[in-house]
Nucleic acid binder design. Structure first.
Length: 431
RNA sequence: UCCCCAGUAGCUCAGCGGCAGAGCGGGUGGCUGUUAACCACUAGGUCCGCGGUUCAAUCCCGUGCUGGGGAGCCA
């Protein structure tokens, strides 16, 4: 009998098929057992009718523990009483393997710590399944966007000899008889890539040894970092705005069912259209003051400030031209106001905070060197980076988008730890 | 690193200075096509560790550990 995936069951109404999967839940009465079968592509109710299958099979089904792996052969029928519109009328039951112990995750509620300890099993649940599917679609959308727009994927190394923005937040690893660090950004390499290939992006894991215990932080997360030659800050903002609209639209088109499972308010996502408001840091500051924040000029926004600032908008906002002192050394100085850096942050609506950080890069050799010295960074590790300014320096800009924060926003989940299969956090290294 | 909160059955939690509780899950039985099904019965405990106060501590105090939320920092 042909093996059919539950996702495709609608194409086989009236046919006899075999489903293979795990027992998600069951209910029974004297004559019937309802087996909820899960195969990773969906869940379907399979009906075991005692008079047809006999007492022995009925008893096996009636006593079957959660997460037993099995094959069920039977006829697919259309049924409005089923959640997905179809059922399997079972004719044959084949147990592949019984659990050797009681499955720890029951259909009832559990605490976060418990579920995180069983992350490898938690991924089997409906909600986690839906999140991982949206993650997949988001990744596909990101790659498609850059592919359609003529970018070349150019991945950055994970072992790096030097810090991008200082070493305090880097994970140090042994590298033969010397030290290396796990990358916290591929950006500097992407700048080299932009000079080689014009439009490039990298997409990979990044590592930050920040001792942050908040809903927005992971020590290992995935970042998409495009870098483009010959675009300035305005061009950069055009790009990030267009990009974010595209990926949100794609998820809306392809993941309706998943968003429904996650009870995401899709009307909020449908409003994500260009243009996004662009505020200078000074304008954002004035606005925060109007709203009654005690925010101090010259500092970065706190979580509350971000929430306050984004509350009056239905789309992400872009805050640009930040005080130089709080931005990284590679950001270009604003020619019109030397106290500002040409950086931009995109803040997601609904309190999800910063999802993008980017900007125009310093392309003047002397200026860049000054900034490196100001930060007290050694010259030697940045010689190759300075070469980019020596050999035909060029206007260029880029940004980094945090995959998990973006996914948390799109799916409406409250914590980024559910936005990655196996999260790494300050207090968690396993499973 | 700092601030706040929590730790009691496999899970989620209630509780009280004096005999350890519920719901779910497990087991047994029943049951009407059930939708986190339902009903009955049943098993299940180092009340996080250590020290202190007390006639008596799961409860109060101190301390440690673990986890959660947040700050700073960031995507």
């Amino acid at each position: 009998m042909a093996h059919v995936w539950i996702a495709d069951i609608g194409k086989h109404v009236g046919e006899e098929v075999t489903l293979k999967g795990w027992l998600y839940n069951k209910r029974s009465s004297k004559k019937l057992v309802f087996l909820q079968l899960r195969d990773g592509t969906g869940i379907v109710q399979c009906v075991v009718f005692r008079p047809d299958l006999g007492d022995e099979i009925y008893d096996i089904c009636d006593k079957m523990p959660q997460e037993t792996s099995l094959s069920l052969t039977g006829t697919v029928s259309k049924d409005d009483r089923s959640e997905i519109g179809y059922e399997l009328q079972v004719k044959k039951v084949e147990i592949a393997a019984y659990p050797t112990q009681e499955y720890p995750i029951t259909p009832k509620e559990h605490g976060v710590a418990f579920l995180m300890d069983y992350r490898h099993l938690w991924l089997r649940s409906k909600r986690q399944n839906a999140i991982m599917r949206v993650r997949h679609e988001l990744i596909m959308a990101i790659r498609d966007y850059f592919d359609i727009n003529g970018f070349t994927n150019l991945d950055a190394p994970i072992f790096t000899p030097n810090a991008c923005e200082g070493t305090t937040n880097l994970f140090e690893v042994g590298y033969f008889d010397t030290k290396a660090y796990l990358t916290q950004s591929g950006q500097l390499y992407m700048e080299a890539g932009a000079a080689a290939l014009g439009k490039v992006y990298c997409f990979g894991p990044t590592f930050r040894a920040e001792k942050s215990k908040t809903r927005r932080h992971l020590t290992e997360f995935w970042m998409i970092e495009p870098e483009v030659a010959f675009i300035d800050l305005d061009g950069d903002m055009d790009l990030m705005e267009d990009f974010v609209c595209y990926i949100v639209k794609r998820v809306l088109e392809k993941c309706r069912r998943e968003l429904e499972i996650l009870e995401r308010d899709v009307t909020a996502l449908e409003k994500i259209k260009k243009p996004f408001p662009r505020l200078t840091y000074d304008e954002a500051y004035a606005r925060l003051k109007e709203l009654g924040s005690d925010f101090e000029y010259g500092t970065d926004f706190g979580g509350d400030d971000e929430t306050m600032l984004t509350q009056s908008f239905e789309v992400p906002i872009m805050v640009h031209r930040w005080p130089r002192e709080i931005k990284a050394f590679y950001m270009k100085r604003d020619p019109k106001d030397p106290t500002k850096a040409m950086g931009v942050d995109m803040l997601a609506p609904e309190g999800y905070g910063e999802i993008i950080g980017g900007g125009q890069r310093e392309d003047d050799y002397e200026e860049l060197l000054k900034q490196i010295d100001k930060e007290g960074l050694p010259h030697e590790p940045f010689e190759w980076y300075l070469d980019l300014r020596r050999y035909g320096t060029f206007t260029h800009s880029g940004f980094g988008l945090g995959l998990e924060r973006t996914l948390a926003w799109i799916t409406g989940i409250k914590h980024v730890r559910e936005a990655i299969p196996f999260p790494r956090m300050m207090e968690r290294l396993s499973p």
